[in-house]
Amino acid sequence: MDTQGPPSVWIDNSHAIVRRGMAACLQQAGFVVRGESVGLTPTPAMAGLDVLIFESEGSALRRAVRLVVGRRTRLVATLRAASEQHVREIVDAGVGAVLPHETLTPETLVTTLRAVVAGTVILPGDLLARLLVHVRQHSQLGPAELSSRERSVLRLLADGMDTRGIAEDLCFSERTVKNVVHDLLTKLNCRTRAQAVALATREGVI
């Protein structure tokens, strides 16, 4: 994501202490906290917002996804507990990162948001493992279906690189990288980069 100036964040969480703690950590790290809400009430001010951190409980996921339709705002979900179905729904919705409350620290919060702003998808290892099972059940991928260029881009995505980093590494334009990623997602029947990497890794493509 291309941003001018400090990245802006809106924090949605039902616990005031959690919200204020997140806000303090992010402000200290150079983020601009645009506002706070509980259950997405009041409705976050979305114009020009870089990241919406929301607590994925109840209908919050569907509401958060509706808020970012047509915008460049990235979603980061926090979780208290997640069933396998919930994890699938979050990833399928295109959420940029998932932060379980049990592993949330100031360092992981800041590192994750910086990565999301840079265009990287972040999933904790245990959630990624669940996703691997899901994509294997819902996709059929043959190694021969991907070109060498697509495999190269996939490998760099798996290394956590964003669009700009991949373009520099492979001497492509950023537009070319975006086109390759789009083709990859279409071929693999995946909605997000995280899904594509998970499937390709599981099937031994990369």
Rank of each mutant, 00 (worst) to 15 (best):
R175H: 11
T176Q: 14
S173A: 09
A81H: 14
V110I: 13
L131C: 02
E150K: 07
H86E: 15
F172W: 09
D92K: 12
R80N: 12
F172A: 00
C171E: 10
L141E: 07
T112Y: 03
A64Y: 07
R80W: 12
E102V: 13
A144E: 15
R164L: 13
R62C: 00
V98E: 05
Q140V: 13
S147G: 15
L61V: 05
V91S: 03
A158H: 11
A64E: 07
E168L: 13
T105R: 06
N179D: 15
T78G: 03
E174Q: 14
G70V: 05
L132R: 15
L113R: 02
E168W: 00
S152E: 15
L170D: 05
S83K: 05
V91Q: 02
T163H: 05
H138K: 11
E84N: 10
A115R: 15
R114Y: 07
E150F: 09
A158T: 02
L128A: 09
L75E: 11
P106D: 04
R136T: 10
G142A: 12
L113C: 03
L75W: 10
G70A: 07
N179R: 15
G142D: 14
T120V: 15
R66G: 09
V117R: 03
G160E: 04
M161L: 15
L79D: 05
E102Q: 12
L67T: 08
L123F: 08
R71Q: 14
L131N: 02
P100L: 04
V87W: 02
S152A: 15
L104D: 07
I90D: 02
L109E: 04
A158K: 11
D92I: 00
G142I: 01
P124K: 08
E145S: 15
R80M: 10
V76A: 11
T112G: 12
V65Y: 03
H138A: 05
V98F: 04
H86L: 14
L104F: 04
S139V: 02
C171M: 01
A93G: 09
V116H: 09
E150N: 09
V98D: 06
R175F: 08
T73P: 05
L75T: 08
G125F: 04
F172K: 00
V87Y: 01
A129H: 10
G160Q: 04
A167D: 06
C171D: 11
T163M: 09
A60G: 01
H101Y: 12
R88W: 09
V133Y: 03
R151P: 02
L156M: 10
R63C: 08
T111M: 09
T111I: 06
I166D: 05
V95R: 06
H86P: 00
E107F: 08
V68H: 02
L127P: 01
V133M: 07
S152K: 12
D159W: 05
H138Y: 06
V69F: 02
N179G: 14
A97T: 08
S173T: 15
D159A: 14
L61C: 04
D169S: 13
V91A: 07
E107K: 14
G96V: 03
E174P: 13
A129V: 11
